[in-house]
Design a protein around this nucleic acid. Sequence first.
RNA 1: GGAGUUGGCCAAGACAAUCGCCGCUAGGUUGCGUUUACGUAACUUAGGGGAGGAAAGUCCGGGCUCCAUAGGGCAGAGUGCCAGGUAACGCCUGGGCGGCGUGAGCCGACGACUAGUGCAACAGAGAGCAAACCGCCGAUGGCCUUUAUUUUCGCAAGAGAAUAGAGGAUCAGGUAAGGGUGAAAGGGUGCGGUAAGAGCGCACCGCGCAACUGGUAACAGUUUGCGGCACGGUAAACUCCACUCGGAGCAAGACCAAAUAGGGAUCCAUGGGGCGGCCCGCCUCGGGUCCGGGUAGGUUGCUUGAGGCUAUGGGCGACUAUAGUCCUAGACGAAUGAUUGUCCACGACAGAACCCGGCUUAACGGCCAACUCCACAC
Length: 124
Amino acid sequence: MNQYSYSRELRLLTPADFQNVFNSPPVKAVSTQLTMLAKPNDRNYPRLGTTVSKKVAKKAVDRNRIKRIMRETFRLQQHKLSGFDIIVIAKPGVNDLDNQALSDLLNYLWRKLSKRCTQYSSES
RNA sequence: GGAGUUGGCCAAGACAAUCGCCGCUAGGUUGCGUUUACGUAACUUAGGGGAGGAAAGUCCGGGCUCCAUAGGGCAGAGUGCCAGGUAACGCCUGGGCGGCGUGAGCCGACGACUAGUGCAACAGAGAGCAAACCGCCGAUGGCCUUUAUUUUCGCAAGAGAAUAGAGGAUCAGGUAAGGGUGAAAGGGUGCGGUAAGAGCGCACCGCGCAACUGGUAACAGUUUGCGGCACGGUAAACUCCACUCGGAGCAAGACCAAAUAGGGAUCCAUGGGGCGGCCCGCCUCGGGUCCGGGUAGGUUGCUUGAGGCUAUGGGCGACUAUAGUCCUAGACGAAUGAUUGUCCACGACAGAACCCGGCUUAACGGCCAACUCCACAC
């Protein structure tokens, strides 16, 4: 079993999945350029959904780039996030970051989010 | 060698390692169906493939799908030199005409305002069956000055009249050659002509119409005849003429189909409740099975095509015929990526979404071929 795979189960696929997380996310991690929302999902693995609107990055090439880096960092950090559905929202300004800066920011936020998730799980 | 023109090709810079993503092919294990074969689902191993010349803008044209449709006309929209190519086009090729460039070449909505209607600011004297501001002329008819002759009145000085001539540029008038205005002022040059001028006349050039010749045609012609000769511009102004066009789009369309609610058929219970004094009857409530519609969701459409490459034949060419050969992304909250190292010319614009043919726009470069101009050398 591969530890760092990113297969179909690890994604949010339907509009219903997305709505569910958007409605009342108990855990958040926020920066100027990004917002992460998380909600428990009764599974023993995490799932990821990404949102990059045309407002944030006008060109399709840029939107793809941002999503790829989001997924890549998630892939490497997924074990700290088990049991949660997560949505990453890009906000104006992300497009100005280069790949290195964006990865650093994401990794910082993943650490923050995983800490809060653990805290949330032990509280409930 | 420098400058340039045209056509074609390449382009996430190349290679390696590690970790990943999406299809495909072949095999293995397990479960299920099953007569072994085989089929199917999950896991797994190996191999191989995985963005563009514009994938973009969505501006045209077609295929495909569903809906509509007897035939014809109107309206509306589009196209607009000619011929050809094509599935088709607003595209491409060749040709014509006009313009630009020393040239290779490039650019052009390029049908019709001698059918009709309309429009033209400002300037200007005048702008649509033209016009006289300056200037020129003032022949013709007046006016003024003056000379000569004749004549009338008067004693005379002188005054008047007629005729002829000269002058004035004064009035009427003539004049579109020149100046000036304008985007545009009603052919050009020369000679004659005239008062001055003017196609007023003539020659040449140009123009219009017709014929002839060449060309499929647009059109062309050192050709012939006729006409002194304007018919101005504008149709991305209405309009006229010729030709083309049904609508919606892969969220098209086809198939499978849970849960919940509701519909129909049938069986069970022949029961509970309501109307009623009771029976019949009517209404309502339950459980099981099946059926069709249909939502979430899934499958399909989905990549082999007006396809690429090579050869030969036809054609100036766009293109086309025949033969051989190749299979080259198919996702769907949406794959084609990340990190590290080495090297170099230090890497532009930019990401498939049913599929093709074009156009347009974006952009760092590299390579090849043909041709042009300039300079130099042999």
